[in-house]
């Protein structure tokens, strides 16, 4: 991966508290796994930046190299890679995601 792409991702995940690299966008996800993460963030009312990797093949490959993670979606909170759909779902169900958001001072609504 070139430095330009690395710096772009680095900047994106530090300028925004929560970033989701996904297929499609938050309004029209193009993949069930991406949609599942959007749904969880929506339930928690976490503001997030959605990056549609389908619009940009460089970022689509770049984000996989960046995280050493071969699949999309990928969630970042306060610059930290959290995981993909399975991990986000598990963390949400156990309450770890909410605890992590609280710890990082990211505002959200815990409806449960």
């Amino acid at each position: 991966m070139n430095n330009v792409m690395f710096d772009r991702i680095k900047k994106e995940i530090s300028d925004n508290d929560v970033v989701l690299y996904m297929k499609g966008n938050a309004v029209f996800p193009q993949c069930g796994f991406s949609a599942a993460v959007v749904q969880i963030l929506t339930i928690l009312q976490v503001p997030f930046k959605d990056v549609d990797v389908l619009q940009d093949s460089e970022i689509r490959q770049g984000i996989k190299d960046f995280a050493s993670w071969p699949t999309i979606p990928q969630l970042y909170i306060k610059g930290e890679f959290i995981g993909g759909c399975d991990i986000v779902r598990e963390m949400y169900e156990t309450g770890e995601l909410q605890a992590f958001l609280r710890e990082k001072n990211v505002p959200f609504q815990d409806a449960a």
Binding site: S68, W69, P70, T71, F81, I82, G83, G84, D86, I87, E90, M91
Partner: peptide
């Protein structure tokens, strides 16, 4: 961690991806 565990599996299956 979950991320570490999943990376172990993904790393092994690089060729399949």
């Amino acid at each position: 961690t979950r991320v570490e565990s999943q990376r172990m599996v993904y790393g092994l299956l690089d060729e399949e991806f």
